[in-house]
Design a protein around this nucleic acid. Structure first.
Lengths: 311, 311
DNA sequence: TGTGCACCACAACTGTTGGTTGTTCACTAA
DNA sequence: TTAGTGAACAACCAACAGTTGTGGTGCACA
C-alpha cells in the first residue's frame, strides 16, 4: 500500500471528483485515476463507483476512509517526531513501567495537546550528552551519582521519592510479613540482575549495602522482568527490590508478595534534568506539571544516598 | 514517506544489522541500504549509526521507531478493513454522536478485542441492500417504516427507546420550563432541518404531527448540527427535538436548554437489523451485548408510532 | 432525439526509481 | 598482515508513475 495513493484516495473522497482532487494534488486526472486503480488492485476491492457526475464512495470505501485518514495522521506524526525545530518534547525515562513513565502518563493526561515522545537511553552520560546536543529535552535520572558533577549548563530538580518494596515468592521466609525493617534484611539474599556498577542504580545499591550490610547480588544475565519474577516466585531464598510505583506485569498464579520496607524506608530519588538553554515550549509545561503534582520529599523515616542533591 | 521503507527501518532496528534485515525481507543488503538512505533523506535525519558491528539506532531513530511500528499497525488495520472474508464487523448507524454510536462505543469498551468499523449509510433501503449483499453486517434503524416490509431474510430486534427532548434557546417561551407536556407544544414552531420525507425520521415525525397537532418544519437546507444549534440559540420562536442520549457539541456561551417532554414522552425506537445468514462471529457478540445492556422498552407514559414492530 | 458537456478510463511514451550484481571501503580480530 | 564482517558506491536494467492524447459513457438541454 502506497501512502501517496492513500492521500489521493482521501482527496478524491473529499472532492467527490477525480478532476478536482487531481487539481488539489497538482497532478493530472489520469495520474489520480491510475493511483486509485492501483490502490483498488492492492486492496482487492472497489473504492468508488464512477458516475458521470463524479466518484462516490462504495461501502468498502466508506469503511476504508477513516482508516486512511488515521494512516495519514500517523504518518504526519511519525515524520514530525524527527522534524528538526518543532519536534515533540522528547523525554528519556529509565524504564517503561517505572514511576517515571507513570509521571509522563500523568503529564500526557493533563496536557494532551503536548506532542510527546518517551524513549529510553542507556546511561546518564549519554543522556546528558543528548541533553547538551539537543537530541532530547529532558531526562529522569538520580543525580548526582558520586563524583560526577553535571556541569553548569544542566539544570535539575527532584520530582519524586519512590519507596522501595521487597518482592518475594510465597515460600520466602518474609512472605507473610506485613512489613519488614531494613535491618531485618541482613543475611537475606537480594537479587537485582542487570544492576551494573557505575550506573545510578549501581551507586544507589552500593550505598544501601554499605550502610545496612545487605547482601545484594547483581550477578547473572538480565533476562528481563518476566524471568526475574519467575525466579523470585519459585525460589524461597531470593527476594528483590522493586519501586512501589512500578506497574509490573503480574504473572498469573504466581502469588508474589510486595512487602513494604520500614525503619527506614529506602526511597529512590527521581530527578528531572534538562539543559538550561533548551527553548522547547513544552518543557516549561512539563516542569510546572511535575512541580505541581509531586511532593513528599525527604519524609521522616526514609533513607536515600547522601549524594542525592538537596531540594 | 514510503511504507516499504518504514517496514525496512523496523526490520533493521530489530535485527541490528542491514544484512539480516535484508534476508528477512528477501531483498539484497544493497536494497536495504538504499531504502534506509532514502528514508533518512526524506526525514532529514540520520536514523542509524553504521558501526562495523552493525547498525545502531540514533536517538532520532529511537524516537521514530514507535511511530514507525504504529504506522505499520494502522496500515495493516486499514487493509484489513476491506479484506474480503475476515474483515472487521461493519455496523451502520444513523449518525455519529447519536444514541446508536453510544451503544457501539459501549460494545467496543466491553469487547475491545472485536475489530469494528462504524459507518453511516443514507437510508434504510440501501442499508438493507447492503445487509443482503454482505457489505455490512448490521444496521441500526427504526423498523419498519410504514408500508415497507423487510423480508424474511432480515432479522431485527429493538434495542433502545430513546426519549426526545426539546432544545431551545434562552429567549424561548419554554426556556425555563422544568418539563413540558407534548400537548403544550401545539402552536410552537419546531424546526427539524434535514428530515426528508420517506425516511424513517420523516415517517416518525409525520405520525407525531398527525397525532398531537404539532407544527414541525423540515424546510430549508441542513447546514449541520452546528448551524442548527446556532439558529436555535438565537431564535426565540424556534425549538427542535433532540435525542436525550445524543452527545452534541455544546457551543460555548450559547445557553441552550434541554427540556424533557412528558405526557406522553415521545421516544424514538432504535432497532438492530442483520441478515439471518450472516456468519460473522462478532455479530452474535454484538447482539448478546445489546440484549444484555439495553432495557426499558414500552415504558408507561411514552409514545411511539404504531408501526413500530412489537418486541 | 440528437448534441454538447463533464467525467473517467485506456493507450503510448518517457523519465525516474527501486532492484540487482559487482566492487570498494572501514573496521575488528586473529 | 590477513581474513572476515558489514555497509556504501557504481553500473545496469526492468518496472513504474507520470505525462499527453484519445475514447467511451451517461446526463442535461435544446
Amino acid at each position: 500500500m502506497d501512502l501517496e495513493a492513500v492521500r489521493t484516495f482521501v482527496a478524491v473522497a473529499e472532492a467527490g471528483r477525480f478532476q478536482t482532487a487531481a487539481a488539489d494534488l497538482s497532478v493530472t486526472q489520469q495520474a489520480v485515476s491510475k493511483r486509485i486503480a492501483a490502490l483498488e488492485r492492492t486492496l482487492g476491492v472497489r473504492l468508488f463507483t464512477r458516475a458521470p457526475r463524479g466518484a462516490e464512495l462504495t461501502i468498502d470505501g466508506r469503511a476504508f476512509l477513516p482508516h486512511a485518514r488515521e494512516l495519514l495522521r500517523v504518518a504526519e506524526r511519525a515524520s514530525a517526531s524527527v522534524r528538526p525545530g518543532h519536534r515533540p518534547l522528547r523525554v528519556d525515562v529509565i524504564a517503561s513501567r517505572s514511576a517515571q513513565s507513570n509521571l509522563m502518563r500523568g503529564f500526557h493526561r493533563a496536557h494532551p495537546e503536548v506532542d510527546l515522545d518517551v524513549l529510553m537511553l542507556v546511561d546518564i552520560e549519554s543522556a546528558v550528552a543528548a541533553l547538551r546536543s539537543g537530541a532530547i529535552d529532558a531526562t529522569f535520572r538520580a543525580v548526582a551519582a558520586p563524583g560526577r558533577p553535571l556541569g553548569e549548563d544542566i539544570a535539575s530538580v527532584r520530582v519524586l521519592d519512590e519507596p522501595l518494596q521487597l518482592l518475594t515468592g510465597p515460600a520466602h521466609a518474609l512472605a507473610d510479613a506485613r512489613s519488614v525493617p531494613l535491618a531485618r534484611l541482613t543475611g537475606h539474599r537480594i537479587w537485582m540482575p542487570g544492576i551494573a556498577p557505575g550506573t545510578e542504580w549501581g551507586a544507589y545499591y552500593d550505598d544501601l549495602v554499605a550502610e545496612f550490610g545487605l547482601t545484594i547480588e547483581s550477578t547473572g544475565p538480565n533476562f528481563g522482568s518476566d524471568a526475574l519474577l519467575d525466579t523470585i516466585a519459585d525460589t524461597p531464598a531470593l527476594a528483590t527490590f522493586m519501586g512501589a510505583h512500578s506497574r509490573l506485569i503480574w504473572p498469573e498464579g504466581h502469588d508474589l508478595r510486595r512487602i513494604p520496607v520500614t525503619g527506614p524506608t529506602p526511597v529512590y530519588p527521581h530527578s528531572l534534568l534538562w539543559h538550561r538553554d533548551n527553548p522547547h515550549p513544552a518543557l516549561a509545561a512539563l516542569r510546572a506539571h511535575l512541580a505541581a503534582t509531586t511532593a513528599g520529599h525527604d519524609a521522616a523515616g526514609t533513607w536515600r544516598p547522601d549524594w542525592v542533591m538537596p531540594r
